[in-house]
Amino acid sequence: MVLTGAVRMSGTRHSRRRVLGTVAGLGAAGLAGCGLFDDDPEPPRVPDPLQPLLDEAIALAASYDRAIVTQPGLAARLAPLADDHRAHATELARLIGQALPSTGPASAPAASAPAEAAAQTVATLRAAEQAAQKSAVTACKAAPPERAALVGSIAACRATHAEALR
């Protein structure tokens, strides 16, 4: 992901994550029909059933990013897993056709944040992966045929992450 490098947004209130999401949304939907250039207010949108899965992917990637900041020694192990989640988010955003992530603040932790022990960081991430795998399994079972394979791969990937964090 080219955009995950050092993006500094000093002087604005936008978090890096939000900007990334916006860029992804434009990339996925193109400029046509996304309401950017109309005056009409956007009609209320029923959330896509896969929206929670997309939110989860974005949140998981952010969790890994924060963990790498607090535990740089884990970077080699955690960065590829974060990349997997970003790949999921990209595909899900494309599938849903809109990608403004409903993420919370994703700023880097304050330097004074107490450093968690590496083992605790890994255990916390592993629990998050296991919970996320469960929701992806549920989503796969409920998905229409044309979405089942992608969602199934995401569920399987989350299971491999839990395994990689053992």
Partner: peptide, 19 residues
């Protein structure tokens, strides 16, 4: 993933298993 770890292949995961 377990075999990749035993073989010391990195990364140990694929983003889209089965694809």
């Amino acid at each position: 993933t377990r075999w990749r770890r035993l073989a010391e292949v990195t990364p140990v995961t694929l983003a889209f298993p089965g694809r």
